[in-house]
Nucleic acid binder design. Structure first.
Ligand SMILES: [Mn+2]
Ligand SMILES: [Mn+2]
Ligand SMILES: [Zn+2]
Ligand SMILES: [Zn+2]
Lengths: 132, 132
DNA sequence: ATTGTAGTTTATAATGATTCTAAAAAAGTG
DNA sequence: CACTTTTTTAGAATCATTATAAACTACAAT
């Protein structure tokens, strides 16, 4: 299994639950956005083994903490996560409630001129809301 | 009362609850960010009259719908609102859990190059997360 | 392999922000 | 005032998320 090392190197034991979730999230060239609920559905469909909802939450948060997932800042009833952890931005289609990636090249360079004493910038994220 | 007309013109009856919330939110030169809970606290302190939590929610959502408040897209346990409804951006201090305004002049012009068929841009918001 | 231990999973309960409900109160109209 | 519509309200319901604590598992040391 290709994810065993990745998990071990992160200090996470490669359990079968985590490996299954790795397969769903990372075993593809395309990155994507998802909610916990959507991930839960994929897990159910994929195999006859079910993973406890608590474990799905735990795993997603563990992966986020390790930098394998990003949480997308958006006001929605559910939290969105992103398997694309590179710096990039998003369209949010208000009607469809769907996120669409915006590469850095789709958005000019963003230069934050204001500085806050004793704080440093961790991330700069642009959210572009779309309507019909 | 200076807010009676404003409310009437919006098709909202100027009730004493709405007027009191108007005073708290708009009777100042400075704009600010708040959660429903923080607004609730201010209401309690301000007067001996209490407003039902449901009414606070109703009023804030009504004002948002009329364009007198903006919801700030951020992942927090509580929803943040902004009395500054002009186009502007935010720092989010992760430690303090506080929002700080970023004027458009503090952020260069943002040019979204990608277009989505049949959709138009409603807003462009930058969130800059700060850490120590 | 057997044991011991820390880490993980799980079902379930708890939490808490937000929304819903339906009855009472207030506002607007004439 | 009489009538209609809107609003307020307390409390219940919702629901995503987190906490709990017991069972299970990975894994290293014996
Ligand atoms: Mn989370
Ligand atoms: Mn809302
Ligand atoms: Zn993305
Ligand atoms: Zn602001």
């Amino acid at each position: 299994m290709k994810y065993i090392e990745k998990l071990r190197n992160s200090g996470l034991r490669p359990t079968k639950q985590r490996l299954q979730i790795c397969e769903i999230l990372f075993n593809t060239d395309k990155t994507f956005h998802f909610t916990i609920n959507e991930l839960e559905q994929k897990i159910k469909k994929q195999a006859n083994n079910k993973i406890s909802l608590a474990t799905v939450y735990n795993t997603v948060h563990a992966f986020e903490k390790k930098g394998y997932l990003k949480q997308i800042p958006i006001n929605s009833s559910e939290t969105y996560f992103d398997t694309n952890v590179t710096d990039h931005h998003h369209f949010y289609d208000l009607k469809e409630e769907k996120l669409i990636d915006l590469d850095n090249s789709d958005v000019g360079p963003i230069n934050i001129l204001k500085k806050i004493n004793g704080k440093k910038i961790k991330s700069v994220e642009v959210l572009v809301k779309l309507e019909d």
